[in-house]
């Protein structure tokens, strides 16, 4: 198979699988009536999914990222401003990086 065709085939396969993930979970849940336990569990999903992202990324990343994380969180807790918090976290790492 030519390189170009195989690349587009791989992209199409990834796109289809991803679309199935995005739509399929909702579709399945709309067909069943979630039990109270399942509803309770889903209410914890937003926090848990982001914690599951962030913790390994911090543990396996460079140590100064912990400082950046603390600054980002503190700024978000104080201002609830997402842009400011990201900028503060990245800015603090720039300061650590260049001193």
């Amino acid at each position: 198979m030519s390189d170009s065709i195989s690349i587009y085939a791989a992209i199409a396969a990834m796109a289809l699988v991803t679309l199935a993930c995005r739509c399929g979970g909702y579709f399945l849940f709309s067909r069943i009536t979630p039990s109270p336990t399942l509803r309770r569990a889903l209410a914890y999903l937003p926090g848990c999914i982001f914690t599951a992202y962030v913790v390994p990324a911090l543990v396996n990343g460079p140590p100064q990222n912990w400082g950046g994380a603390a600054v980002t969180m503190a700024m978000m807790a104080k201002t609830r401003n997402l842009g400011l918090s990201i900028a503060a976290g990245v800015g603090s790492l720039f300061i650590i990086h260049f001193i």
Partner: peptide, 15 residues
Amino acid sequence: PLFFGALAAFIALLV
């Protein structure tokens, strides 16, 4: 440090 931006977005959204 710029690459920390993507992770920082996740961390901030946790709050």
